[in-house]
C-alpha cells in the first residue's frame, strides 16, 4: 500500500495529560480521510505533529518517507488549515492569500479568485475584523487553492452556514476529482462528511479506535428494536454498544455483520433491524468514556516536556 504518512508509536504528553498514547497508523496516498473524534481526543495534536508545528514526546513520524521537522521540501507539500489560525494584526485576506501563493508550489490563483468570489470574502478588510465564517473561508480557500499533496482541514467549517459548508464540500470533491491528493478532514459534523470520505480514522482518548474504509465502518453496527426478552435472546454472544428501552421494547445497537439468513431469523421473531449511521456509530463508540483522557500519575518524566 502506498502511504504518504507513517506514524509509529507516537506519544505526546502535556504535563500530566496524555494527548496521544502510542498511536500507530498510515495515511494512504490520494484518499480523503475523515479524522474524527471528540474535542480533546488528540486530533489537533496529531495534525500539529505531522506538520512539524509541534514535537512528539516519543515515537516516529514519516511524511513522504522523511522526518517533517524543519524539512522545507516536505513542509511545502503539506497544508494545514487550523481551526484557530492566527494572523498578524494588520493582515488582510489579500496578504494571507499572497503569502500562501509564495509558499505552495502547486497554488492555483484562478481557483483562489473563484473561491473568494463564491465565499464573498472581503479581501481588504483586516482579518481581525472578519466574521468567524469569513475567517473560516480564508482557511478553506487556502486549503483548496494550495492543492498541497497532503491537506489537513481541522474543523474548517466554524461559523460557515449550511450553504457555505455545502460549497466547501462540493468544491473539495470536484477539485479532488480533477487533482487527486490526500486530504484529512477533521469534523464533528460526521453526517455531513460521511459520503465525502473514503476512510475513517477515529481517535478517542489519545488512541486510534477505528481505521478502516467508510464502507466497512458503516456496515459495522446494526440497531435492533423489539420485545426486550426476544432482543436479548437474539443478541446473545454479540457485542452490544448501546441499549435503550421503552416499556417492554428495547432498542439495542450491536457490532457485527448479519448475513441474509441471520436477517431473516431476526425478522421471523418480530425484530426490526435498522442501519446505524456513521455518526451514530462513532457517538456510541466514543461515549463510553468520559470526556478528557487518562491522566497519568504524577509524572516522573515531567522534565522531558517540551
Amino acid at each position: 500500500m502506498d502511504s504518504v504518512i507513517e506514524v509509529r508509536h507516537l506519544t505526546k504528553r502535556y504535563k500530566d495529560v496524555l494527548a496521544l498514547d502510542d498511536v500507530t497508523f498510515d495515511i494512504q496516498r490520494d484518499a480523503i480521510y475523515g479524522f474524527l473524534g471528540r474535542n480533546g481526543a488528540g486530533k489537533t495534536t496529531a495534525m500539529s505533529i505531522l506538520t512539524a508545528q509541534n514535537l512528539p514526546t516519543s515515537g516516529q513520524v514519516r511524511v513522504f518517507g522523511e522526518d517533517p521537522y524543519e524539512n522545507a521540501v516536505v513542509l511545502s507539500r503539506m497544508c494545514f488549515v487550523r481551526e484557530s489560525q492566527k494572523y498578524p494584526d494588520d493582515a488582510t485576506p489579500r496578504h494571507a492569500l499572497a503569502s500562501a501563493r509564495l509558499f505552495f508550489p502547486r497554488w492555483d490563483q484562478d481557483l483562489a479568485d473563484d473561491l473568494v468570489e463564491e465565499f464573498q470574502l472581503p479581501l481588504k478588510r483586516t482579518i481581525k475584523k472578519l466574521s468567524r465564517g469569513q475567517l473560516s473561508a480564508v482557511g478553506v480557500i487556502i486549503g483548496l487553492a494550495s492543492r498541497a499533496e497532503i491537506t489537513f482541514f481541522d474543523e474548517p467549517y466554524l461559523g460557515l452556514d449550511a450553504v457555505a459548508r455545502q460549497t466547501f464540500y462540493d468544491r473539495l470533491l470536484t477539485d479532488y476529482a480533477e487533482h487527486p491528493r490526500t486530504v484529512l478532514l477533521s469534523s464533528h459534523l460526521i453526517d455531513e462528511v460521511a459520503n465525502l470520505i473514503e476512510r475513517v480514522l477515529v481517535i478517542d482518548g489519545g488512541r486510534i479506535i477505528m481505521d478502516e474504509s467508510t464502507e466497512d465502518a458503516r456496515a459495522q453496527a446494526t440497531n435492533v428494536v423489539g420485545d426486550a426478552a426476544t432482543v436479548e435472546t437474539a443478541l446473545r454472544g454479540r457485542e452490544v454498544i448501546h441499549r435503550e428501552s421503552l416499556g417492554r421494547v428495547s432498542s439495542v445497537t450491536f457490532l457485527g455483520r448479519l448475513d441474509d439468513a441471520e436477517r431473516a431469523a431476526f425478522a421471523a421473531v418480530g425484530l426490526d433491524l435498522a442501519p446505524v449511521s456513521l455518526q451514530q456509530l462513532i457517538v456510541r463508540l466514543t461515549q463510553q468514556r468520559t470526556p478528557g483522557r487518562d491522566t497519568l500519575a504524577p509524572a516522573s518524566q515531567e522534565g522531558t516536556l517540551r
Binding site: Y169, D170, L173, T174, A177, N195, L196, I197, E198, T214
Partner: peptide, 15 residues
C-alpha cells in the same frame, strides 16, 4: 462518468 456521478451524488469519487 465517475466524476459526474461523484459530483451529482456528492460522494467520494472512489465510491
Amino acid at each position: 462518468s465517475t466524476n459526474e456521478l461523484a459530483a451529482f451524488h456528492r460522494i467520494n469519487p472512489a465510491t
